[in-house]
């Protein structure tokens, strides 16, 4: 299978760099898969699970805030937070959900309220996804 270059960068360090077969990226308007030879593309991320398919077991990482850029050089994902799913603690998600709930109650106008409730929904779906993943393992 054709591979392409993938980089996952957070402000603090580079988490992944290398050749991969496929990457599933949680875009703000829906998940999308990237294979070799993808057209140039820029998308923002929503909090979610990014899956890297390379040799062996697929690698799953929780990413939050940032964007993905696909160019001829490959795929680059810039995420403000990126944690391997195995290292992720349930209470961390819970804390973010609590923050989002606070944002929702603090929101002054509709635009903010919609944004906050979207975030809350996204985080809850991440939590649900993690819970099912944990059960199958």
């Amino acid at each position: 299978m054709a591979t392409f270059h993938f980089e996952l960068v957070s402000p603090e360090r580079q988490l992944f760099s290398g050749a991969v077969d496929q990457v599933m990226v949680p875009g703000s308007e829906g998940d999308f898969g990237v294979l070799a030879g993808h057209a140039p593309f820029v998308a923002t991320l929503r909090p979610g699970i990014l899956t890297i398919h390379a040799d062996g077991q697929p690698k799953r990482l929780y990413v939050r805030g940032g964007f993905a850029e696909i160019s001829a050089g490959g795929l680059t994902v810039l995420a403000e937070r990126a944690t391997a799913v195995e290292d992720l603690h349930a209470d961390q998600i819970d804390r973010e959900i609590r923050d989002a709930e606070e944002d929702l109650t603090d929101a002054k106008d509709d635009a903010h309220r919609i944004k906050a409730s979207d975030r809350l929904d996204q985080l809850k779906s991440v939590k649900a996804a993690l819970a099912t993943a944990g059960a199958t393992h």
Binding site: G27, S28, E29, A39, P40, F41, V42, A43, T44, S71, A72, G73
Partner: peptide
């Protein structure tokens, strides 16, 4: 540099 037009989402 590669002069390819990007697609944007959103």
């Amino acid at each position: 540099a590669d002069n390819a037009p990007y697609e944007f989402e959103p």
